[in-house]
């Protein structure tokens, strides 16, 4: 299913990576942030929403990186270049990610930033939407969000253009040892 997901997600301009361990994924994310100009100033910093990925990590070391913030507010999110969050599921047949986004922080970092980095447990890959809906009931999830590729529009002359109101890039990082959310 991973291969199918990757093909479909890349088909809608998402960028897909996969790592065996959290440590490797973390290293990749940090490297990516630096390569893309991470800095502690507006439009250059990163906002990381609380998520299971961070459990058991050396937060002190992460917080020491200039430009990497963990206090999610609306004001910060709207000027962040990077938003980092964990998405619980991936749908192989459409290349989509899904998350219980009831917590507002999860929505802020993934909808206001310019580049959204999504961490996904590889075990969260599901075949399709029916599989997702059978797992996630609205009773336990007031805001179920699905994301398929970056924000896009074709409203001017039908020309596909990336990044209207939401992120203009979606980076998906699968982590094999992130456990499941099931």
């Amino acid at each position: 299913m991973y291969q199918q997901f990757k093909t479909r997600a890349e088909g809608v301009s998402a960028e897909v990576y996969r790592f065996k361990t959290k440590a490797a994924a973390r290293a990749h994310v940090i490297e990516f942030l630096h390569a893309e100009g991470l800095a502690d100033e507006p439009d250059s910093f990163a906002l990381w929403a609380d998520c299971p990925f961070l459990d058991g990590m050396d937060l002190g070391a992460l917080k020491g990186i200039a430009g990497l913030k963990f206090e999610v507010t609306c004001e910060l999110a709207s000027t962040a270049r990077f938003g980092i969050s964990q998405m619980e599921w991936a749908l192989a047949d459409t290349g989509s990610l899904a998350q219980n986004s009831t917590a507002i922080e999860q929505r802020l970092v993934s909808s206001l930033s310019t580049i959204h980095i999504a961490l996904v447990p590889t075990s969260g890959i599901l075949p399709d939407m029916p599989a997702l809906l059978s797992r996630v009931h609205p009773k336990e999830c007031a805001y179920l969000a699905m994301i398929t590729g970056p924000s896009r529009t074709a409203d001017i002359e039908r020309v596909l253009t990336i990044g209207v109101h939401g992120p203009e890039r979606l980076i998906i990082v699968f982590v094999d040892d992130l456990g499941g959310t099931d």
């Binding site: 459409t94 989509s96 009831t102 999830c141 805001y143 969000a145 699905m146």
Partner: peptide, 15 residues
Amino acid sequence: QLLTSYVSIITGPTP
């Protein structure tokens, strides 16, 4: 499209 970029299923108020 196979799926629209963003789909939200909203059930009751959220924070």
